[in-house]
Design a protein around this nucleic acid. Structure first.
Lengths: 199, 199
DNA sequence: GTCCTGTCTGACCGATCAGTCAAGTTACGG
DNA sequence: CCGTAACTTGACTGATCGGTCAGACAGGAC
C-alpha cells in the first residue's frame, strides 16, 4: 500500500449520493453523471468504484436497507412493553421526515426494478424477511404477555407490514386522501385490533 | 371522410401492446419500437397516434385502469351478501392469472413513475379514490345489515386496500414467503376481523 | 378513371449517456 | 526525492433510441 485506502469513505459518499438522486428523480432518469456531481466527484471516479451502473444501484439498494435497519434497531430496545415497542416501530415507518421519505422512495424504486430482476428479488426476500421476523417477534412477545390476541403472529405481521407498505406508497404519491396523519390513524386502528381488549 | 376511421381500434391495439411490454420488461426498458413490434406495426404508426412516449404511457396507464374496473364491475352485482361481495372483490385482486398479474405490474410501474410526476399523481388520486369508494360502500352496506362491526368504513377500507397493495407487491416479487395462497390467508384473516362475530 | 384524405412505413437524424482511457495527481515507503 | 501504487479526472467513443419526414398506399367520393 502506497497510500491509506479511502475506498470505504468514497464508496459511502457515492452510495449516499446515489440514494439521494434516485429519491429525487427516480432510477429511470438517474445518470451516472448526476451521482458523480452530487457526490462532488467525476464519472470516472464513480466507475473506479463501481464497474457498471447496475452494480452501483445494487450496492445503493443494499446500503439503503442497512441504514434503515440501523436507524430502527435502537428503537426496539427502548420499550419493554411490546405494545409500545410495536407502536414505536410502526411510527418510525411513517414518511414524516426527509430521511424516511428518501428511504421509502429508494425502496419503491427497488421494488419495481426487482419485478424484472431475480437478483434484486432475492435481495428483497432477505430484507423483507428481516422486517417480518422483527414484527412477528414483537407480536409473539405481546401474546406471551397476554397483551395481544392469540393468533398466527406471522399472518398478522404480514398483514401489518403489507398495509404499511401500501399506505406509505399512497402518502408518497401525495394523495389528498392519504396524508401522514390519516396513515397514522389507519395504523392506530389496526394496532388496536391486535390488542386483547378491543374497544 | 374518405375512409372509415380505424383510430379507435388501432389505439386500443397499441395501448394493449404497451401494457404487455411494460408488464414484461418495465417502463424503464420499454422502447417505442418494442411496442410497435408487439402491436404488429411500425414506430411511425405508434407516433401517428401518440405524439410522444410520455403521452403513450399516460394513455396506457389510463387504459389499464379502465380495463381493471370493467373486469370487476359485474362482480359487485353478483353477491347480495356484503360479506360475499367483499370477499369476491378481494379475491379478484389476487395475482393468480396472467391478466391480473399484468394489470398489477402496470400499476406498480405507474406508482413509481408517479413519484416524480404530478400529472400521474392526479391520475392515481382519481383511480384510487374509485377503489376506496367501492370498498367503503360495501363496508357500509355490511354495517347497515349488522354483518360488519361498527367502525369508520373509510378507515377500514384504507387499511384493507393498502394491505392488498403491499401484499400483492410481494407476490409479484416472487417472494417465497408471500405466495398467492399465503396472501389469500392473510386477506381471509383481515376479512374475518371485519365481521361482528369474530371467532 | 382521378382526386383526396386518412393511414402507414422505415430510413434517418440528433441527442443522450454508460463506460473507456490516457494522462494526470497524491501520498506513502525506502 | 524517487519509485510505486492508489486514486482522480474529463474528454471521448460507440451504441441506443425518440421523434421526424418524405413518400407510399388504400379506399371512398365523384
Amino acid at each position: 500500500m502506497a497510500r491509506p485506502s479511502v475506498e470505504a469513505e468514497r464508496r459511502e459518499q457515492i452510495l449516499s449520493a446515489a440514494c439521494e438522486v434516485v429519491s429525487e428523480i427516480g432510477f429511470k432518469s438517474l445518470r451516472v453523471a448526476d451521482v458523480a456531481k452530487r457526490a462532488g466527484t467525476s464519472t470516472g471516479t464513480v466507475h473506479y468504484y463501481f464497474d457498471t451502473k447496475t452494480e452501483l444501484m445494487r450496492a445503493a439498494f443494499e446500503w439503503n436497507f442497512a441504514r434503515s435497519l440501523d436507524r430502527r434497531r435502537p428503537l426496539l430496545d427502548e420499550h419493554p412493553d411490546p405494545r409500545e415497542r410495536l407502536r414505536a416501530f410502526v411510527e418510525s415507518y411513517l414518511p414524516v421526515d426527509d430521511v424516511t421519505v428518501r428511504a421509502w422512495h429508494v425502496w419503491a424504486e427497488l421494488w419495481v426494478e426487482a419485478l424484472h430482476d431475480p437478483d434484486l428479488q432475492e435481495m428483497n426476500e432477505q430484507v423483507y424477511g428481516e422486517w417480518r421476523r422483527i414484527v412477528a417477534g414483537i407480536l409473539r412477545d405481546g401474546q406471551d404477555s397476554g397483551l395481544f390476541r392469540e393468533e398466527d403472529p406471522v399472518l398478522a405481521a404480514n398483514a401489518l407490514i403489507g398495509m404499511i407498505d401500501g399506505l406509505a406508497l399512497q402518502v408518497l404519491l401525495r394523495s389528498r386522501s392519504m396524508t401522514v396523519d390519516r396513515m397514522r390513524a389507519v395504523c392506530d386502528r389496526t394496532l388496536r385490533n391486535l390488542d386483547v381488549a378491543t374497544v
